[in-house]
C-alpha cells in the first residue's frame, strides 16, 4: 500500500530530536498490547478454531484436524456462497470505482451547487448499517416506496416484494451497496484530486482537451495509486462487511440467494452452532481477501 510505504520513509527521513529518544517506543506499548489482545490474537484464534469440532458456543470442543475444511469444500452451500460473493464483488467494484471517480472529478470542477451535492453524497457515510437497512427494508418491501411508485405510474404488473423474490434479492443487496458506496468514495476521490496541482489540467484545457480526456488521461493516472487503495478498501469492505447489511435486509434469503461468504460464516456460527465450519470458511474468506489485495496491487502496478 502506497501510504504505508510513504509513512515508513517519512519516519526514517525525518529523524526525531537530536539527543536520546530512548524509551520513547515504550509509550506505544499499551496501545500495541491492546491491539494484539483484541485483534491479532482473535485472528490467530480463527485459524485454530477452524481445526476444532465445536458444536456449541458454550459447549466443549475437540480436535478435528482438517475435517471442517473437508466438510466445507464438500458442501454445496459453500460453493453457492462463493458464487454469490463473486457476483456481488464482480458487479459492485467495477461499477462503483469508475462512477465514484467521475463523481469525484466532477466535484473538483466546483460546479454550481457543489456544496449541497457534497452534503448529499456524504450522507451514506454518516448513516449506520441498521438505519440504512431499515430505510430500504421499508422502501423495497411489498408496501414500500418502489411498489407505491410503480402503481402510481400504472405499472402494477411490475410490483413485487423486491427483497423476498429470488430473482431480485441479490440485485437489491448490490444496489443498496452501491447507493452507500459511490457517493462516499466520490467524496474521497474529490479530496484526493484537490491535492493535485491543477496547472496540468489547465494546460491540457488550453490545448483543447475535453474534460472527459483530462479526467481519464491526466487526473486518473496521477491518482492511480489512490484509486488502487480505495479499490482495495472497497473490496475488503464489501467482502467482509456485507454480513450486517444482508442479515438485516434478507437474512441471506430467499433460499440461499443472498448468502455471501461473510454471511455464511455468521449463519454457521450463530444459527447452526457449527463454530469449526464457520471459522474454516473464515480462513477461506481471509485468504480470498489477501489474494484479492495482492491482485489489485499488481493490476495497479502494471498500469504504471
Amino acid at each position: 500500500m502506497s501510504s504505508v510505504k510513504f509513512r515508513l520513509k517519512a519516519n526514517s527521513q525525518k529523524a526525531g530530536p537530536v539527543g536520546s529518544t530512548k524509551g520513547l517506543s515504550l509509550f506505544s506499548l499499551p496501545a500495541l498490547g491492546w491491539f494484539v489482545f483484541f485483534t491479532i490474537g482473535p485472528l490467530v484464534a480463527m485459524f485454530y478454531i477452524s481445526t476444532l469440532n465445536w458444536r456449541s458456543i458454550i459447549g466443549q470442543s475437540e480436535p478435528a484436524g482438517f475435517s471442517n475444511y473437508e466438510k466445507l469444500f464438500g458442501s454445496d452451500v459453500f460453493y453457492a456462497a462463493l458464487q454469490t460473493t463473486a457476483i456481488q464483488l464482480g458487479i459492485m467494484i467495477p461499477v462503483m470505482i469508475p462512477l465514484a471517480f467521475m463523481v469525484g472529478y466532477y466535484l473538483t470542477l466546483k460546479p454550481r451547487g457543489h456544496r449541497v451535492l457534497r452534503v448529499i453524497l456524504f450522507t451514506p457515510g454518516l448513516i449506520s448499517i441498521s438505519a440504512t437497512a431499515m430505510v430500504f427494508y421499508a422502501a423495497l418491501g411489498p408496501q414500500g416506496l418502489v411498489n407505491g411508485l410503480l402503481e402510481a405510474i400504472g405499472l402494477d404488473d411490475l410490483t413485487k416484494p423486491w427483497l423476498a423474490s429470488a430473482d431480485t434479492a441479490l440485485a437489491m443487496v448490490i444496489i443498496v451497496g452501491l447507493w452507500q458506496g459511490i457517493g462516499y468514495s466520490g467524496v474521497l476521490f474529490a479530496a484526493r484530486l484537490e491535492s493535485v496541482n491543477k496547472d496540468l489540467f489547465e494546460a491540457a484545457k488550453l490545448d483543447g482537451a475535453s474534460e472527459w480526456r483530462i479526467m481519464w488521461r491526466i487526473a486518473f493516472p496521477i491518482t492511480v495509486d489512490f484509486v488502487g487503495t480505495l479499490t482495495m478498501l472497497q473490496f475488503l469492505w464489501t467482502l467482509f462487511g456485507s454480513a450486517g447489511l444482508i442479515l438485516l435486509l434478507t437474512r441471506g434469503g430467499p433460499g440461499q440467494t443472498t448468502t455471501t461468504l461473510s454471511l455464511l460464516i455468521y449463519q454457521k456460527a450463530f444459527f447452526e452452532n457449527d463454530l469449526g465450519y464457520s471459522q474454516a470458511a473464515g480462513v477461506v474468506l481471509f485468504v480470498i481477501g489477501l489474494a484479492g489485495m495482492i491482485l489489485i496491487r499488481r493490476l495497479i502496478r502494471a498500469r504504471d
Binding site: F35, L43, S262, I265
Partner: peptide, 19 residues
C-alpha cells in the same frame, strides 16, 4: 510497531467476530 499498526488497519474486524 508502526508497521504492525499500518498493516493491522487492513485486518477486517469481521474476520475476528467469532473468536
Amino acid at each position: 510497531i508502526e508497521r504492525i499498526f499500518a498493516l493491522g488497519f487492513l485486518i477486517p474486524a469481521f474476520a475476528t467476530l467469532v473468536p
